[in-house]
Design a binder for these strands. Sequence first.
DNA 1: GGATATCTGTCCATTTTCGGACATATTTGT
DNA 2: ACAAATATGTCCGAAAATGGACAGATATCC
Lengths: 226, 226
Amino acid sequence: MPRSAPPRRDETTKQAAFDAQTFLDSAGVARKVVEFPTKTAIFAQGDAAEHVMYIQQGGVKLSVVNETGKEAVVAVLRPGDFFGEGCIAGQRLRMGSATCTAPTTVLVIDKSEMIRVLHAEHAFSDRFITYMLTRNIRIEEDLIDQLFNSTEKRLARTLLLLARYGKKDEPQRILPKVSQETLAEMIGTTRSRVNLFMNKFKKLGFIDNTDGLEINSSLLSVVLHD
Amino acid sequence: MPRSAPPRRDETTKQAAFDAQTFLDSAGVARKVVEFPTKTAIFAQGDAAEHVMYIQQGGVKLSVVNETGKEAVVAVLRPGDFFGEGCIAGQRLRMGSATCTAPTTVLVIDKSEMIRVLHAEHAFSDRFITYMLTRNIRIEEDLIDQLFNSTEKRLARTLLLLARYGKKDEPQRILPKVSQETLAEMIGTTRSRVNLFMNKFKKLGFIDNTDGLEINSSLLSVVLHD
DNA sequence: GGATATCTGTCCATTTTCGGACATATTTGT
DNA sequence: ACAAATATGTCCGAAAATGGACAGATATCC
């Protein structure tokens, strides 16, 4: 059964730069630009789902709550990401909530308008398909991570991804502030557990938070090693 | 924090029937039909990724193996599903393996051809986008399940989904044979754990395997209740 | 139809995780 | 600058999950 290790995601998608704003302008799309301060809910679980969003600036966190009130963070998104696209596949209600993690500017596109543009404009539909495929790959990786790995590894991987390790652009050692609570919700564990491992990582010199949270690439050893 | 429970996926996509074979025929697409016996590997983790597949008949299981040789099942697919579509987003290598769970007929479409058709044919590109969105929703739900729920609930949910509960067509009480080992790989636990809960479910009358594995809808109580 | 491989049932010692509590920082609003 | 709200560090008993092992039951292949 033992076979070679899974290919790393570095060999994955690099997508061409694409300015949806400009594009949609020229395509004459009905859309509006909306700005939200940090912590605003762009939509909440259970709301009617009628628009697709595109992040221009800022950051958005997608989360879901349980019957028991427990929260899980499904994705952390950045400029260039779409969200709320489930409505195109016929979802009538939002399956989770979208919350700003920073002052955020989004493009709001009507569902019907979105469909029209996907038909009318190849460049846009290419972009969207690529985005969906890429996102798929990422969610699948999150799932695999969850199926295979211990809490400790999942935390390490999440920190590295948040710091954007393995991306072409700035390796960005210092993280936008994330609470241990949120990290726990992302990897599906308790805060005490996150705290335990964060301190372990600190002791081992894998991370450092004298001034912001700095992720050292040596943290990779946690993910890679047995 | 406590909010209403997540909307159920019943309110999700219903997609129109669509015969890709016929469609691709009329669109003059370069593709071939290939048949595989049960247990064949259609592709293996690490292979070059150059084609998108579309399942005509049979069943396919997507899985990934660890550095340590542990296996995880990421998806179980049926007729009408696409797979191997990562290559369109630029993936050069297969991230996992695709194995037949039954005698299977697939349509094999060249990556470049796929891209061409996505451009040229609205009906096809609509279908593909819808498929991707739906799959996304499903993987996300699997991830959420993993983040929130105990092994017992995950097992119950997986059994119900395999039996296609909540689908318009045949509620199909009897399952295509799946080993406890495979179930364990699907929900990310050990076989002993699966065995434990399977026996528990039997005792409680939620399932019955005097003749094949029969899933009773009362199994829902496990998923729904605390 | 018998050998072989694969699944199932059952156990158990060890490890991991939960979940909650409580005190101490640290941030934020006004 | 102070009060209120959040976040962090630490601890612990109880619960869940792991990772074997081993015997018996079923399929599967010549």
